[in-house]
Amino acid sequence: MPSETPQAEVGPTGCPHRSGPHSAKGSLEKGSPEDKEAKEPLWIRPDAPSRCTWQLGRPASESPHHHTAPAKSPKILPDILKKIGDTPMVRINKIGKKFGLKCELLAKCEFFNAGGSVKDRISLRMIEDAERDGTLKPGDTIIEPTSGNTGIGLALAAAVRGYRCIIVMPEKMSSEKVDVLRALGAEIVRTPTNARFDSPESHVGVAWRLKNEIPNSHILDQYRNASNPLAHYDTTADEILQQCDGKLDMLVASVGTGGTITGIARKLKEKCPGCRIIGVDPEGSILAEPEELNQTEQTTYEVEGIGYDFIPTVLDRTVVDKWFKSNDEEAFTFARMLIAQEGLLCGGSAGSTVAVAVKAAQELQEGQRCVVILPDSVRNYMTKFLSDRWMLQKGFLKEEDLTEKKPWWWHLRVQELGLSAPLTVLPTITCGHTIEILREKGFDQAPVVDEAGVILGMVTLGNMLSSLLAGKVQPSDQVGKVIYKQFKQIRLTDTLGRLSHILEMDHFALVV
């Protein structure tokens, strides 16, 4: 994948999101292997301009796509893939009243899908469409860049269908997702969380590099694949309309690839034109409109599966009536509230959605109805927002919020430890010299600072030695090549209790 991002070429006709291997024109390309080798690009942008032909009021008969309808489940399912879809609609009884809503608040519980998330729908649909058009064949390999849930859905379907599955996901995604993927037989590649989507090191860039190296491999490409919004247009939206008897006044959905909100909203605009569509985008993402909503100094966020630093091709923002931004604290607070007060075992993005819903639905009156999409299960986040310690460490809970008995030293300040200034190293000294210094002084790690004293990161003896043994660096290389740029900081005025929580999850903390 090139470091400079080429513009994806656009073909003359058809839909841009065809499933299957992508040609340089962004659509299915038939021909000899030699032709494909000559024409197939190194990668295709996940934010390529959409060429979708959908228009409100256009006859369904003019759609270029294969459409399906929700099917009634048999008493005995032939395999677990038949437990994807037909998820329950559940009334939220307490939270709406707590925040003064007059309307009825309903939750579409997508964590009841077989793999635990709304992404099971698009995973199965992308595979079925690729099999139907002859792209996927027995023994082929599926590769997908994902925040985890699409990966789980694909790995689940691949396990049943017999495909090899490789999932490329950023490091910030939970260990629970990784464990589930491994249990399903998927191979996992992790990428830096802070890598831009168009960087060769991003999950998108690495996935395309693997595709170019592995024979008979395919990126189904949830960011561009029409099967993504079509899955929701054909099934999720129809289920909502049936469950609500066609009567709903507002739908609120958090947005990642945009397939969920695009597919549902398009069908609702056709069948229930008075329904307002509300999009939820986390602070630090750029999906919301108008652009002024996205202006923030924050560039990272903890909530998973929603928000991006690019506009995915499948996201149709014209069908969203209003956007709201959400933050991590309210997302996790509301997710825990949904679990504790409503018994809905949902993930953090569901918290984002409901946090926005109780604001947006203030305009609705008694007798009206708001539906929220709860995308995934708490299963993926047992060591994250479900953990009091994690919430404390991230600053989303305060010590006084917890009532468990603490040891005698818990409320003492870090400054009472009488710490001395640490050994520091410059980023320009060599790895070999740094190892000598650390061994001589008896230290395992040291902060790396520039000549102005600005902290650049941390270097550890173990990481340097393993990097040297693996051949990633040489003793003569500058130590700046092996620094940890993500590390926890703590102030002298913070409590030892807070430091204790940090050290339970990290090997060190830097006192500043």
Rank of each mutant, 00 (worst) to 15 (best):
H203N: 09
V168W: 02
A186L: 00
K82G: 10
H67S: 14
S217R: 02
W54T: 06
S19D: 09
G100H: 02
D140A: 07
E131K: 14
F112P: 01
V160I: 10
P145W: 00
E29M: 11
G274D: 10
K119V: 01
T191N: 05
R224D: 03
A226C: 07
L268D: 01
L81A: 04
A231S: 06
S50T: 08
P33K: 10
I214H: 01
T13N: 11
L136D: 00
D35F: 03
L181C: 00
F197W: 09
T191D: 04
Q7Y: 13
P46F: 02
L220Q: 02
L106H: 10
K137V: 04
P200A: 08
I240K: 01
K25L: 12
E171S: 05
R125H: 08
H232A: 00
I92Q: 01
G96T: 04
E4P: 12
D120Y: 06
A114Y: 02
V90K: 01
E29Q: 14
I127A: 10
D47Q: 07
G256C: 00
G11H: 09
S19G: 10
Q7G: 08
Y163Q: 01
T260M: 04
E9M: 05
K172F: 02
D179Y: 13
R209N: 09
K83C: 10
H203R: 05
A157F: 03
D79S: 15
F112T: 06
T257I: 02
Q55M: 12
P41Y: 10
D179K: 04
F197D: 06
L251C: 09
P64H: 08
C103F: 06
T235W: 09
L106S: 07
F111R: 01
V168A: 07
E62Y: 15
A107C: 15
A226P: 11
G96V: 03
G57I: 09
K137S: 06
R224P: 06
H218R: 15
I95Y: 00
D198T: 07
E201Q: 09
Y163A: 00
D120P: 07
P145M: 00
K211W: 06
R224S: 03
V189N: 06
R224H: 08
N194K: 13
E110I: 01
G116L: 12
P59H: 10
G246F: 01
K39N: 14
H66E: 05
A231L: 03
R266S: 02
R276V: 12
L248M: 13
P12E: 09
T235R: 05
R276F: 10
I143A: 02
K94V: 06
T141F: 13
I76R: 02
L42W: 07
S3V: 13
P33V: 10
L248K: 06
E40S: 10
R196P: 10
L106T: 10
C103D: 01
P6I: 04
F111M: 05
L230F: 11
A155K: 01
D86T: 10
K119R: 05
I80L: 05
R121A: 01
F112K: 04
G153H: 01
I219P: 00
K102W: 04
F111I: 04
Y233I: 01
S32K: 07
G31P: 10
R18L: 11
P192Y: 06
K137H: 09
E40L: 15
P70L: 11
K177A: 00
G96L: 05
K39L: 15
E9P: 10
L251A: 08
L230P: 04
D234M: 10
T260A: 07
L251T: 04
P46T: 00
G205W: 15
I92L: 05
P59A: 06
T68Q: 14
T146I: 02
D221C: 02
G20H: 12
K82C: 09
A183S: 14
S117C: 04
P12Y: 08
G151K: 01
S61G: 03
D86W: 08
N93A: 05
K172L: 01
P138K: 09
H232W: 00
G185K: 06
Q222H: 02
P64D: 08
G151F: 02
D249C: 04
V160T: 05
E34A: 05
G116E: 13
